[in-house]
Simulated assay, not measured.
Amino acid sequence: MNATQTSAWHKALEALKVNAAKLSAGQERKIREIIGETLWEPLIRQTRHDLGKHVRANPERCGLVFVRLAGTIAVYKKSCV
């Protein structure tokens, strides 16, 4: 990952953590919806994929748990932890 993508990934991850904490219990969202289009657009496909893998592998850090797939896109909800 180049420096630009690394920076964008970190900004998206921080926004994800903050916005995930604001979700109401049981509310389901895609990562794109949680971080917002402004931070999503600079990410290339591979970086988006890596961000999703990180969220799924670290539910305690991100505050989200995997719920289901909507086609090929993962859907998450706020973690109770």
Rank of each mutant, 00 (worst) to 15 (best):
K11S: 12
K11N: 12
A12P: 01
L13H: 06
L13M: 11
E14I: 05
A15G: 04
A15M: 03
A15Y: 01
A15E: 01
L16E: 02
K17W: 06
K17G: 10
V18H: 03
V18M: 02
V18P: 03
N19Y: 08
A20Q: 04
A20F: 03
A20I: 07
A20M: 07
A21V: 02
K22E: 04
L23E: 07
L23C: 05
L23M: 12
L23T: 00
A25Y: 05
A25T: 13
A25Q: 13
G26P: 03
G26N: 03
G26F: 01
Q27S: 08
Q27G: 02
Q27M: 08
E28G: 01
E28P: 05
E28H: 05
K30I: 07
K30F: 06
K30H: 09
R32S: 15
R32C: 14
E33I: 00
E33L: 12
E33C: 02
I34F: 04
I34E: 01
I35A: 09
G36M: 00
G36W: 06
E37Y: 12
E37M: 14
T38R: 09
T38G: 08
T38W: 00
L39W: 06
W40Q: 08
W40P: 09
W40S: 06
W40E: 11
E41D: 15
E41I: 14
P42S: 11
P42W: 04
P42H: 09
I44N: 15
R45D: 14
R45S: 15
Q46N: 14
Q46E: 15
T47M: 14
T47S: 15
T47G: 10
R48I: 12
R48C: 15
R48Q: 15
H49R: 15
D50E: 13
L51D: 10
L51A: 10
L51H: 06
G52W: 05
G52T: 10
K53A: 12
K53D: 07
K53W: 04
K53G: 02
K53F: 08
H54D: 11
H54E: 12
V55H: 04
V55W: 07
R56D: 05
R56C: 05
A57W: 00
N58S: 07
N58V: 06
N58R: 08
P59F: 03
P59T: 05
P59C: 00
E60T: 13
R61I: 11
C62M: 09
